[in-house]
Design a protein around this nucleic acid. Sequence first.
DNA 1: CGGAACATGTAACCTGTTACATGATTTC
DNA 2: GAAATCATGTAACAGGTTACATGTTCCG
Lengths: 179, 179
Amino acid sequence: MSLPHAILTALLEKPSSGLELTRRFDKSIGYFWSATHQQIYRELGKLERDGAIRALPREQATRGQKKEYEVLPAGRAELARWTAASQDPKPLRDTLLLRLRAAAVVGMDGIEADLRRHLTLHRRQLAEYEEIEKRDFPPGKDAVEDRLRHVVLRAGIDLETFWTQWLEQTLEELGAPGA
Amino acid sequence: MSLPHAILTALLEKPSSGLELTRRFDKSIGYFWSATHQQIYRELGKLERDGAIRALPREQATRGQKKEYEVLPAGRAELARWTAASQDPKPLRDTLLLRLRAAAVVGMDGIEADLRRHLTLHRRQLAEYEEIEKRDFPPGKDAVEDRLRHVVLRAGIDLETFWTQWLEQTLEELGAPGA
DNA sequence: CGGAACATGTAACCTGTTACATGATTTC
DNA sequence: GAAATCATGTAACAGGTTACATGTTCCG
């Protein structure tokens, strides 16, 4: 039950159409909550039926015609409720770790190359986040909203840092130093 | 498509019944791939139909009667194939980060308490992992299989370390130092 | 006017979650 | 023999993924 809340957050930041939302989910929001356009349209329909959002009035909107949404008071209230509600952290679920555990049983053939590939990808992602940090959070900005967005980005940076370091150590430990 | 492979790995480590698997998923395997007993029984049925595993022969097994499974060659081959195959890392999907982003829009009311609660939970999990490391991986054990299982546990430890540190920094940054 | 890019959707499927059902074995 | 626990399952639903369908606008 998080996608609707992700969408409400995005729409509060800026009213948008389905495709605009999709693009924003491919960028900033998608860094911690990804979604495809099919999910987004499906959810926009539900949110509209539930009275959480409404389509900005324009001439008859048919298929293929842009449709912008904005959040209604009920939607904002629901988002505030959800944000404050206590939630348990989800247990980790990671394929790469599972594959390493499997490799202890069926052998490591072929997995090293993919570890190196992941290292490259995580390094790239880390560099991207650091660019964003430099651009969007220069020292000094410290309104509460900025600090909140900054700690979220920090989580992304620290996580990517963890993965790159862990992959480097793992490759070394398994006798195959990374690129 | 990871649950069947998690089950195959577990069964190769030790042939088991559905309930035994469930218990193991609540412990070691569940640290990086969780599953409920309903998922496990459903998947065991599928794997058996596909010829990847078979029930160890015992007298007629009816409902309520224990049923042990072992992996067949086809299942082992499929696991080896899957382990070696290249897979992309899944994008991050974290509710707590999403809630912080939402808090930048609807306000932080009530979220601080949950951040502190998460900090407690992550500290506890970290302590548990460190216990396991001390018990199962004393210095000196270095067969390849042990090293593989150790790096997986290391990932768990480092991830929990990341979360505790990030939560401490975040609570401080938001003007509310952690417990 | 034809093709690319924009824009919204449908349908089928797979995985995971929640609630419930049922039988077998042990223990008091 | 009743209750607790062990053990295997069914059903309904929610959320995410993949493939496909359809209409609109812009540009050469």
